[in-house]
């Protein structure tokens, strides 16, 4: 096969889709991008990026261990990420948010151990150096039909759960004390979210690789939240950016000899830069500048008490 990028986009696209592996890669990439766009949006809102990254890193020994044992890497990712999510979600942390957030030294240690044992499993398997790179930095070659279906099933289940808990989760995320007083199960929601984040990290790892999950989990969400403060709009925008970035990354990687993870990350970064720049320009041009001065006089005053 010698893919060649020409000047005719329709021909290029049809070239792309000729190969079954490429079709599978695009399907898998789209599923993962939608899931990462949504769950990453919540992760950024809840300031839990560090948790997300840790979960992804823990997926690496899971995947390499699974390959060593002759299993599919997919199950290794899901198994380890969800197990780690369960442990992390159960850790005592900020009273209202649940789970850890700032204990960086503990987490750094866990991340290092995860990377080291992942490398050990890969070495035990032997002659796997290419595979190690793929696990760490992503690969879209050889996505099987079974893998696509597994990704789809997990994504549908996770997004369904998220839609069911969306509003109370938002309340618990931005205003935990009032939410708790209102009877919102803040801790349980926080626990559930970390599990969902584990699933999203496991999914994203399979496209971008363990070390580049932020390309899909953080960058689209951060870009979207720069572009608009309207919640529903920025959530949709995050999904759109994640999907576009994934398609572009996979498409370009197909015609190039460099890895997909690199391109996806680069496009994600570009999206973030553009979003940040456009926000700065909007702020400069004074979108918020026309605010009236506020004084006590603007308040309705009550008649004096009897």
């Amino acid at each position: 096969m010698s893919p060649h990028l020409g000047w005719n986009p329709a021909r290029d696209a049809s070239q792309l889709l000729t190969y079954h592996f490429m079709l599978n890669a695009l399907c898998a990439g789209t599923i993962v991008a939608v899931m990462a766009g949504v769950i990453g949006w919540w992760m950024v809102l809840r300031r839990q990026s560090f948790v997300g990254h840790t979960l992804a890193v823990v997926g690496f020994p899971g995947a390499s261990g699974a390959v060593w044992l002759g299993l599919s890497a997919t199950w290794g990712y899901f198994g380890f990420c969800v197990a780690a999510a369960t442990v992390i979600a159960g850790l005592p942390g900020r009273p209202a948010m649940g789970g850890f957030s700032e204990e960086s030294s503990v987490i750094g240690t866990v991340q290092a151990l995860a990377l080291a044992s992942g490398f050990l499993f890969a070495s035990l398997y032997g002659g796997f150096l290419n595979g190690t790179t793929a696990l760490l930095f992503g690969s879209f070659l050889g996505v099987t039909n079974g893998q696509v279906w597994a990704l789809l099933a997990v994504a549908v289940a996770a997004l369904g759960a998220l839609v069911a808990i969306g509003r109370p989760l938002l309340f618990a995320s931005v205003d935990p004390y009032v939410a708790e007083a209102r009877g919102v199960p803040v801790r349980a929601l926080s626990f559930a979210f970390v599990i969902l984040l584990g699933l999203a990290a496991a999914e994203a790892s399979q496209i971008t690789g363990t070390l580049l999950v932020f390309a899909l989990l953080v960058m689209p969400a951060a870009a979207a939240q720069q572009l608009t403060v309207r919640l529903a709009r920025s959530l949709w925008l995050s999904v759109v950016i994640a999907v576009l970035v994934t398609w572009l990354g996979l498409g370009v990687a197909y015609f190039s000899k460099y890895p997909a993870g690199f391109y996806i990350t680069t496009f994600g970064f570009a999206a973030y830069l553009l979003a940040a720049a456009s926000r700065m320009i909007a702020a400069r041009s004074g979108r918020w500048g026309n605010v009236m001065p506020r004084t006590a006089a603007s308040l309705p005053t009550a008649a004096s008490r009897p």
């Binding site: 998220l162 839609v163 069911a164 808990i165 969306g166 509003r167 109370p168 938002l170 309340f171 931005v174 205003d175 009032v178 939410a179 209102r182 009877g183 919102v184 529903a232 709009r233 949709w236």
Partner: peptide
């Protein structure tokens, strides 16, 4: 959120 933040589900755009 003070009005209906404790209701399950999620409003769509």
């Amino acid at each position: 959120l003070g009005l209906d933040g404790d209701r399950w589900g999620m409003p769509l755009m």
